[in-house]
Design a protein around this nucleic acid. Structure first.
Length: 815
RNA sequence: GCCUGAGUGGCGGAAUUGGCUUUACGCGCACGACUCAAAAUCGUGUGGUCUCACGACCAUGUGGGUUCGACUCCCACCUCAGGCACCA
């Protein structure tokens, strides 16, 4: 018997699997399909890390399992290769992103092979391949043609380090998602995708998906749907009105002022509201001061309230109260209508503002009858639950009834409209960087003259796609808000596809999320040159049955790609409204010190090192044994020897002398194992599946076994440690790959125990365990229980008042 | 502040339609076998306190509650992790 040598056998089987093309998913297969997806990686110079490995190994095990269960499994792989690191590398080293990306892909491909991952390489895609981004551009144009891609100038998030605009989702804690730099606000012309048009559908669509509840909730909270009412307030002596959004119209009799944000259109010029000079001067100054304040600072809580009076008053139609109109930066221009009603008695922020400007505070809600004290301190401000007072026809109602009553009243009078507001903002879709898909539009001055919008933006015709990214010498972002592409005159200057006159290309590129917003669709039909994917092939493979990935994409990729899919579904271009039926997030793997793995900390453990030291099978299996797939885990190097030892034991066991017969213990244990492991794989509970296999070995190691039984065990082991399973199967005389075998069936009769252990409790405390035959009646059970000496001792002559009996489980004697 | 999760041995973690004396499986540790010796391997043990021992009692973040019986259900609180946040 040779020693277990992972390196040797793993290389052998990896070669053989590739040669036999065992993992290619066949479009024409008549088997039912399973589409297992992992988030395709960014081809980084650092190669695969633990997070990749965790997902890929899990996806691999479950793919191998479903293939054995008779499914045509698609487990594809590709490269999300546009993005900043390649570009920054290019700036530093002068290497073309195309070149460094190709190198990284080659390296990571080797790493994946070394792990024995059963990807279908015939479907490999790369987002930076013109054959791929041709369709990214084409899909963008579908949004454009449907009016869901638009150009606008506005204050957007700007990363001063990466020198590009960012979407809301890319700002974490006021910082750039990529580099951690504090984000600034910058006025820029940008392309937007109208994701807000799908806010409702994005919430609705989640209902029937088999996703973890927290992930759904996080998306729903991000979309932030709120039902409320827009109330119009007439400005006294002016024709204009101020519209305020509120979810608490019930408190309207307590309104004592109105606040609008400094960005509000009514403050764009002095002339709009005919504001008096002395007030306008202050407003101008205030606006300037606010513009210089960072977004992060401005939205800090407990910040001293500030503001300026406009000299104008708004009229509350309910009671003719004239409310002074203020400008203050605690009201944000992009939230609601950019104007709020000041109800200092029942909103903490309004109260703080009222204190600064010495505005009256009126109580309109009381907790109970005795709750009459004037509100003078912030902690007396009551924001929920209570009974209405000082509110005319609302008096005596609870706040919920009052909300309904007054809403109906205001709407009927024509003073307000019910409305729904969302926190979700439209998706800033242009970036001022080089390494991305060019936005396939052309700006034509001549056509602009004919265009009612005055823009003259013309879509590049389908037959001229892709608009290829030109090769340049300088990748540096300009920092002016213009993409480096703007400097490539030969590329920028083009002919207008509409009028044939001189025109300029759009020089912004798409964000890194563009290519990943549809890649799972392309896998269905990756080589199609006529359409982004053939509809029949989409129908064959979509939707994704199981999607592995990280929690960090909940409000990024997962939201964006659902939006694209829903839009394409509405356009009749895809066959499923939702792309991913089941989502399985993985926990972050921390370094051994409990900190996030990072090069600077020096706590990185690479898959390469594990494979080198213990072999791919042990590395895979340990990854699965570590803990629940979704749990955050601190890496621990020591434990892997346990898995290595287990594999070595299996090696010796299967290579050892085997007699012809299986003992009843062995047969039973195997049947139970088949059931348990199958259930655990389907439930993605690999850690307990591995434990069950170890337990199985402990039970059977000294028993007599047949080669047939060992072979069945190897089939169970195969999804986890495929190389050693294949090798041992061959040792036992197997001629074909285990991948072609079917998953063993268990015999239900073998699972049921004839003899069971009945727990005997006295007053709920377990005192004894007696062996009895299954399906025993209560009387017999009681007799058997009482026969136990231990039980007799604990009863010590006390009389039994009650007997609780759960067949095959326990009997509890209450004395 | 709000929304999610999670707190079980020295460590990673098992067990929740409430019930097989909490801690499966693995690591670590201790002792033993093999060996001249070591490694590897195999075997035994391993929550705490008290006890020579049989055994008793206490233990699933803390405090209550429901129940014949609670890691599991309910209430309050503490700690940690993730998300959101002057959101009207």
């Amino acid at each position: 018997m040779d020693r277990y040598n992972p390196k040797k056998i793993e290389a052998k089987w990896q070669k053989r699997w590739a040669k036999e093309q065992l993992f290619f998913a066949k479009d024409e297969s008549s088997k039912p399909k399973k589409y297992i997806l992992i988030e395709f990686p960014y081809p980084s110079g650092d190669g695969l890390h633990m997070g990749h490995m965790r997902s890929y190994v899990a996806g691999d095990a479950i793919s191998r399992y479903w293939r054995m269960r008779g499914y045509e499994v698609m487990y594809p792989i590709g490269w999300d290769a546009f993005g900043l690191p390649a570009e920054n590398y290019a700036i530093k080293h002068g290497v073309q992103p195309k070149v460094s990306t190709a190198k990284n892909i080659k390296h990571m491909h080797q790493q994946m092979d070394a792990l024995g991952l059963s990807f279908d390489w015939s479907r490999e895609v790369n987002t930076t391949d013109p054959e791929y981004y041709k369709w990214t551009q084409w899909l963008f144009l579908q949004f454009y043609k449907a009016g869901l891609a638009y150009e606008a100038t506005g204050l957007i998030n700007w990363c001063p380090k990466d020198k590009t605009g960012l979407a809301n989702e890319e700002v974490i804690d006021g910082k750039c998602e990529r580099c951690g730099t504090v984000v600034e606000k910058k006025e820029l012309r940008q392309w937007y995708l109208k994701i807000t048009a799908y806010a409702e559908k994005l919430i609705e669509g989640l209902k029937d998906l088999d996703w973890p509840e927290p992930v759904k909730i996080q998306q729903i909270n991000w979309i932030g749907k709120k039902e409320g009412i827009n109330i119009d307030y007439q400005i006294a002596d002016r024709p204009e009105k101020v519209t305020c959004f509120t979810t608490r119209p019930d408190t309207n009799f307590g309104a004592t002022f109105i606040v609008i944000g400094p960005e509000h259109p009514l403050l764009a010029r002095q002339s709009v509201l005919q504001i008096e000079d002395k007030h306008w001067q202050q407003i101008e100054n205030y606006k300037q001061k606010v513009a210089q304040t960072g977004e992060l600072e401005r939205t800090m809580e407990n910040r001293q309230k500030s503001g300026v009076f406009t000299g104008l008053y708004c009229v509350n139609n309910l009671n003719d109260y004239h409310m002074p109109l203020y400008v203050a930066d605690y009201v944000l221009g992009n939230v609601g209508t950019g104007a709020v009603i000041g109800v200092p008695g029942h909103d903490k922020r309004d109260f703080e503002f009222a204190k600064v400007f010495d505005l009256p505070v009126i109580r309109v809600v009381q907790k109970d009858k005795n709750d009459n004290d004037p509100i003078t301190e912030p902690d007396q401000v009551q924001e929920d639950e209570g009974i209405m007072v000082n509110s005319d026809f609302l008096d005596g109602m609870d706040i919920h009834t009052a909300t309904k009553e007054i809403s109906n009243h205001l709407v009927k009078k024509g003073w307000a409209q019910k409305t729904i507001s969302y926190k979700l903002r439209d998706w800033v879709f242009s970036r001022q960087r080089y390494w991305g898909e060019p936005i396939p539009l052309v700006h034509c001055e001549k056509c602009a003259l004919q265009d009612p919008s005055g823009r003259g933006t013309v879509a590049v015709p389908d037959e001229d796609l892709p608009v290829k990214l030109p090769e340049v010498d300088k990748y540096e972002p300009t920092g002016t808000g213009e993409s480096p592409l703007a400097a490539v005159e030969k590329w920028v200057n083009t002919k207008c596809p509409q009028c044939d006159g001189p025109a300029k290309r759009e020089t912004d590129t798409m964000p890194q999320w563009a290519g990943s917003s549809w890649y799972w669709l392309r896998y269905s039909d990756p080589h199609n040159k006529k359409v982004f994917a053939d509809k029949e092939k989409l129908a064959k493979w979509q939707p994704v049955d199981l999607y592995f990935g990280g929690m960090e994409h909940t409000t990024l990729h997962l939201l964006y790609s659902r939006f694209w899919n829903q839009f394409l579904y509405d356009q009749g271009l895809v066959t499923q409204p939702e792309p991913y039926l089941r989502r399985q997030p993985h926990g972050i793997i921390l370094g051994e010190d409990g900190e996030k793995m990072s090069k600077s900390r020096g706590n990185v453990v690479s898959p390469d090192a594990l494979i080198e030291k213990h072999g791919a099978d042990a590395a895979r299996m340990y990854q699965m044994f570590l803990g629940p797939h979704e749990a955050m885990i601190s890496w621990n190097d020591r434990g892997i020897v346990g898995v290595s030892r287990f594999l070595e034991k299996i090696w010796r066991w299967a290579n050892g002398p085997t007699q012809g017969t299986d003992s009843p213990t062995v047969t039973k244990a195997l049947n139970k194992l088949i059931k348990k492991v199958g259930e655990d794989i389907e439930g993605i509970q690999f850690n307990t599946a591995v434990a069950a296999m170890m337990d199985f070995y402990n039970q059977v190691k000294n028993e007599s076994v047949s080669p047939t039984l060992i072979k069945k065990f190897l089939q169970v082991l195969y999804p986890f440690a495929p190389h050693i399973a294949e090798e041992l199967n061959e040792v036992l005389g197997g001629k074909t790959s285990l991948q072609l075998e079917t998953w063993p069936e268990f015999d239900p009769a073998q699972i049921i125990d004839q003899q069971i252990k009945l727990v005997v409790q006295i007053n709920g405390k377990t005192r004894a365990v007696v062996e009895v035959v299954a399906d025993l009646g209560e009387a017999e059970a009681k007799t058997l229980a009482l026969a136990s000496a231990v039980v007799q001792k604990h009863l010590a002559g006390q009389s039994i008042r009650q007997v609780i009996y759960r067949p095959d489980r326990l009997i509890n004697l209450v004395v």
